[in-house]
């Protein structure tokens, strides 16, 4: 593969590779280190993109090469801080409320009622594992409020992200117009209040969600969270190497309750990775559940929903 002038569609340099050139050896070292530390994998075609993203970190640390930056990440006494800066730089702050809403509704309209019907005293624990700037966990809280469960039942919603900067933005609870491009207008009116030229969730929604930093490449950082009843881990595996996805999914599988489930993004799949999770149909969405539990979960969901529907019909609700 040639980089340029070959007429080929091979590897391309970064938009401003003139500033810092990312040679083969440091690219390979950085790629492996980034995969180990963050789970993200940059294939050869993304070399220019990686160079563009990291060039500021090279410059800001007063370094003159990516190789020096690699050593800084691995060996500096402030390596953790450099890693956080890296996570912030590599994060893609692109999300919005009510994204893939059929999954959010499956959680609020099927999983949550089933949970409280079968385990009345146990809190429903929902984890947004790559919460970015907070739109996803807030959407989950709104959905649960819509079905009357948010204040009526014990519910814990936790949003985490590997990037401390993203978590800080999520905690700020301040959202611009792009975040609202999908959510129905009536929900925006009901659950948000103006905040200058931006919007913030009303207090009962804000109160329902807590945030923390957790790196999915480090099982110890999220093993506790993975005991949640529902895990939303959407649009993050597309950036991960297969081995990392497998490791994360196995941790989910080991830690989540038998009737727990995991929602992934539309472009993500675990089926080719041989993990002990299988697809189940929940409401109008698909989620991964523990292998062998699909029929049980689908049957239970149907039975509970049928009961609820019958009750509603009988009582005229």
């Amino acid at each position: 593969m040639t980089q340029n002038n070959s007429g080929g569609a091979g590897r391309l340099r970064g938009y401003h590779s003139e500033l810092f050139a990312l040679a083969d050896a440091p690219f390979s070292l950085l790629r492996e280190l980034i995969m180990e530390k963050t789970g993200m994998y940059f294939d050869d075609a993304k070399r220019g993109l990686l160079a563009d993203k990291l060039s500021e970190l090279v410059a800001v640390n007063g370094l003159t090469s990516f190789l020096d930056y690699y050593y800084l990440l691995r060996h500096d006494e402030n390596a953790d801080a450099h890693l956080n800066a890296l996570m912030n730089r590599l994060s893609v702050p692109e999300t919005y409320f009510w994204r893939q809403s059929e999954q959010i509704l499956a959680m609020s309209e099927v999983i949550a009622p089933t949970h409280f019907a079968t385990k009345p005293r146990a809190p429903l624990r929902v984890w947004s594992a790559a919460c970015c700037t907070g739109e996803e966990p807030v959407s989950l809280a709104i959905a649960l409020a819509e079905v009357g469960l948010l204040d009526a039942q014990p519910i814990e919603i936790v949003g985490t992200d590997g990037s401390p900067a993203m978590v800080a933005r999520a905690r700020a609870n301040s959202f611009g117009p792009r975040s609202f491009r999908q959510i129905p207008a009536n929900l925006k009116e009901r659950y948000f209040e103006p905040d200058g030229d931006r919007w913030r969730p009303i207090e009962r929604i804000r109160r329902a969600v807590s945030y923390d930093v957790a790196n999915l490449a480090v099982p110890a950082e999220f093993a506790g969270l993975a005991t949640a009843d529902v895990i939303f881990c959407r649009n993050v595996f597309i950036y991960f190497a297969d081995d990392v996805i497998r490791r994360v999914a196995r941790t989910f599988c080991e830690r989540m309750p038998d009737d727990g489930c995991v929602f992934l993004g539309a472009a993500e799949s675990l089926t080719r990775l041989n993990v002990d999770l299988e697809l189940a149909e929940i409401g109008k969405a698909f989620a991964y559940v523990k292998a062998g539990r699909r029929h049980h979960i689908e049957r239970t969901n149907s039975a509970i929903l049928a009961t609820r529907t019958a009750t509603h019909v009988t009582t005229g609700h």
């Binding site: 003139e18 500021e56 410059a59």
Partner: peptide, 9 residues
């Protein structure tokens, strides 16, 4: 810093 570096260049 990248913008500054680009401007210097």
């Amino acid at each position: 810093a990248t913008v500054r570096q680009a401007a210097i260049g």
